[in-house]
């Protein structure tokens, strides 16, 4: 069945991607043409269409680099530079991924614990929960510079400030979903467990926790994506040496478009990989149960 659906999607996706690539190349010619003509072709005198196209595809600092330029840049930065060199994008991706995952795990633990407390405490439910729900409509990412400064003046630098920002971005969706999930058992199921005179702890592990998982995992996918965005933004103002955010920033300082695009593609790949990681964990925990 899933095989079938995969095939159903394969052709349309491939077609759209191909159309997208062609449009990208055309757009690149159009956007880069002016600069190329002014800087490269005009000084040489006469030039042909072929020369123009070739030149727009191989500019040093194009307005829009073409896909094969980006691919080449990614390739050289990953395979030609040693792994510990700041020129290697994998290193930057690794730094970002590390901070994101650390923050994600911290947020998961914190959010889970808080959700458990909220479900079992009427006071927290009434007093704290509305604020957590409301925080979803607030651009919490804007606090990132402040968190960095506070932690910085406390002498905490490096990965931890970034992880903290990723943590609080992960924490909100996890808490909300987890509270929803822990409350998901219907009255009938709760009453059944009640007739067994199960303790609160037993009820939690037998009923509440399992029924919260279908709510938890979608929120984890949201959380890890938010955490990654948070980490990348956190890498901007610190003057960080490493990390995809730092690459984006230095790229934009020096007008090195190719570097920006490579970092961007790398960030996208990282996002996909991290989400896939969550999906894999989900499959290991929930997917098997569903199949049985």
């Amino acid at each position: 069945m899933s095989q079938n659906r995969f095939q159903q999607h394969l052709v349309p996706v491939a077609t759209l991607l191909a159309v997208g690539l062609v449009l990208w190349y055309l757009l690149a010619i159009w956007l880069n043409a002016a600069g190329v003509i002014e800087r490269v072709l005009a000084p040489q005198g006469a030039w042909s269409w072929q020369e123009l196209v070739a030149a727009t595809f191989s500019m040093q600092r194009p307005v829009l680099p073409v896909p094969h330029q980006i691919a080449l840049d990614l390739w050289t930065s990953i395979f030609d530079a040693p792994l510990d060199s700041p020129r290697n994008l994998l290193l930057h991706a690794w730094v970002t991924a590390g901070a994101t995952l650390t923050g994600f795990l911290m947020g998961l633990v914190l959010g889970g614990l808080l959700a458990v407390c909220i479900v079992h405490s009427r006071t927290l439910d009434r007093a704290l929960m509305p604020w957590i729900v409301a925080s979803q409509s607030v651009p919490v990412l804007a606090i990132a510079p402040i968190v960095l400064i506070i932690l910085g003046s406390l002498g905490i630098t490096g990965m931890l400030p970034k992880a903290t920002i990723a943590m609080y971005l992960c924490f909100f969706p996890v808490t909300v979903a987890m509270v929803q999930g822990l409350r998901a058992p219907q009255r009938l199921e709760m009453e059944l467990i009640h007739t067994y005179s199960a303790s609160r702890i037993q009820t939690f592990f037998v009923l509440r926790l399992p029924s919260s998982l279908p709510f938890l995992f979608p929120s984890l996918r949201v959380a890890i994506a938010a955490g990654l965005a948070g980490t990348i933004v956190a890498e901007l103002p610190t003057g960080a040496q490493a990390g995809l955010g730092a690459r984006l920033l230095t790229g934009s300082y020096y007008g090195n478009t190719l570097q920006i695009w490579s970092a961007l593609i790398m960030a996208a790949l990282l996002g996909v990989v991290l989400t896939a990681l969550v999906a894999a964990v989900e499959y290991l925990i929930v997917g098997r149960r569903r199949q049985a």
Binding site: H9, P12, V13, A225, A229, L248, T257, A267, A268, L274
Partner: peptide
């Protein structure tokens, strides 16, 4: 056809830190 093609791509974008395009 367009739906099957666009939906996977669109859902993939939710995993990508799109804010990163800001410098561009």
């Amino acid at each position: 056809f367009l739906q099957r093609g666009l939906l996977p791509i669109a859902s993939l974008t939710s995993t990508i830190p799109l804010v990163g395009v800001a410098p561009i």
